[in-house]
């Protein structure tokens, strides 16, 4: 599998993400944001960080990087795209995913391991999980308070686009940031564009707190 990891000015999870995919056996390389074309990738990842210093709104400026036009085309043709944290915010601002991010309810930047519940597994990303599985993955964000209008949200539930929710270790809903319905991760209607605030690439080593990220990223290998 070939993975392209997009690097914007201010991206800071690019190396971790490349390393994480190499660990599960993929070939990964960086794509600088000013490139205009995508090579033959099986997956394009928009990693976390602070693209363009989060100016205006998180992800708002990165949307206009030259590579985004190529990614839009790629996604339209069914190519797989994964946005992690700031990458998720960029996908929202680019209208490749529905909704928007606002500031965390408590105003704080939250950085810790958090439990997540698998809501839907009928997609490539979470196919290795069962519905209701509880996993433990780090979050690190100040703007993860997901908002979307009610009609769209209903459509997303009906279509299996709500993928992950924040919960406690027993699976009870636990909302760290005010996100609507405690949503942590979603996908688009065609189930080829995925976005989540938690960082699977930071849960790849038992020594560093957990390996639930491996099972997630491996979904793309199949």
């Amino acid at each position: 599998m070939r993975v392209g990891v997009v690097v914007f000015p201010g991206t800071n999870c690019d190396r971790d993400t490349k390393w994480a995919f190499e660990k599960i056996g993929a070939k990964a390389d960086f794509i600088w944001h000013s490139e205009k074309e995508l090579k033959n990738y099986d997956l394009v990842v928009l990693p976390g960080g602070f693209s363009y210093g989060d100016y205006l709104r998180s992800g708002a400026i990165a949307r206009f990087s030259p590579i985004m036009e190529a990614i839009r085309e790629y996604a339209k043709k069914g190519g797989y795209v994964l946005g992690i944290c700031n990458g998720f915010q960029i996908l929202l601002e680019s209208h490749l995913l529905p909704g928007a991010m606002t500031r965390n309810e408590g105003l704080h930047f939250i950085s810790k391991f958090h439990h997540l519940k698998v809501i839907d597994n009928n997609n490539k990303f979470l196919q290795n999980f069962n519905i209701g599985d509880i996993i433990n993955i780090p979050i690190a964000h100040a703007e993860g308070n997901y908002k979307v209008d009610e009609d769209t949200l209903k459509r997303m539930y009906d279509n299996g686009q709500v993928l992950l929710k924040y919960c406690d270790k027993n699976g009870e809903e636990l909302n760290p940031n005010g996100s609507i319905d405690s949503i942590a991760g979603i996908c688009n209607e065609n189930k080829n564009v995925f976005g989540l605030m938690p960082h699977p690439e930071r849960a790849m080593e038992e020594m560093l707190g957990g390996i639930d990220g491996i099972k997630m990223l491996e979904g793309f290998l199949k």
């Binding site: 205006l56 709104r57 708002a60 206009f64 601002e93 928007a100 908002k147 209008d149």
Partner: peptide, 8 residues
């Protein structure tokens, strides 16, 4: 197109 996000 850019300055405001109509969703929020």
């Amino acid at each position: 197109e850019l300055l405001a996000n109509p969703v929020i």
